[in-house]
């Protein structure tokens, strides 16, 4: 569904992504694992078009989206949930969802606020609350719900567990699993190994802007040396 070939991205003169290649199959959850600064967020930002890649190709479905404007990429069915969540703090929950709304896609059931409130019951109880008056966990759920309103075929989740209390992380894992069951393909960037391996089908390890390992979750668990190089001190 998503096919990234040899993606390079620069910030000024700094060469951040040095040839990222990865594939995401329809319906799967792929987790991008790596330390701070390895290039996880930059990969996702390059995919949605917020950062313009300097080289490489991104194919989404049958379409090449490299270098397209973010709004065009989002309309093509790629959803993005940023690490900082970027909730519209002056807007209510319902208004935040409205900003994310895009026309339904043929062949897929459309997300409605009601369906999203079933997925994130907390949100349903605070429809008129301002985004700025919500806790971090609630904002994270709203950020995901807002992106789902665009009926994405694939959603990019940037560290959804970051800074959240363990019990909220648990809820988040449930929600992501539920999303997956409803047919959304997910590309997840994470540092929380436990959280990530609970919900993902496959993992790709990123280090200094390159994919250094790809494989299934069981394979990752079977290779403690790899886990040490990725996250060990």
């Amino acid at each position: 569904m998503l096919d990234v070939q040899d993606l390079h991205t620069h910030y000024g003169r700094a060469h951040i992504l040095q040839g990222i290649s990865l594939q995401v199959a329809p319906g799967e959850v792929l987790v991008l694992l790596g330390r701070n600064g390895a290039g996880k967020s930059t990969t996702l930002k390059s995919l949605i078009g917020l950062v313009r890649p300097t080289a490489g190709r991104i194919r989404f479905g049958t379409e090449y989206i490299t270098g397209h404007e973010p709004h065009a990429i989002a309309r093509a069915g790629l959803g993005y949930v940023p690490e900082e969540r970027r909730i519209f703090t002056d807007l209510t929950v319902m208004e935040n969802l409205e900003v994310g709304r895009l026309p339904p896609r043929p062949g897929l059931p459309a997300w409605t606020p009601e369906r999203l409130f079933a997925l994130f019951p907390n949100l349903g109880e605070m429809r008129t609350r301002l985004g700025g008056r919500m806790s971090g966990g609630e904002q994270q759920m709203l950020a995901i719900a807002r992106t789902l309103m665009g009926n994405p075929r694939l959603i990019l989740l940037d560290e959804p567990s970051e800074g959240l209390a363990p019990i909220i992380v648990e809820q988040m894992a449930h929600a992501i699993t539920a999303m997956k069951r409803q047919g959304v393909t997910i590309l997840l960037a994470e540092q929380n190994l436990h959280f990530a391996t609970n919900i993902a089908d496959r993992a790709a390890a990123i280090e200094r802007g390159r994919i250094v390992w790809t494989g299934t979750i069981p394979a990752l668990h079977a290779d403690p040396a790899l886990r040490d190089t990725l996250f060990g001190a």
Binding site: P70, R75, Y80, D90, L91, E95, V99, G100, T147
Partner: peptide, 14 residues
């Protein structure tokens, strides 16, 4: 109003 706050995010939402 959303764009007044964060127009990049608005673009990323399509």
């Amino acid at each position: 109003r959303a764009a007044t706050q964060d127009r990049e995010m608005v673009a990323a939402l399509g």
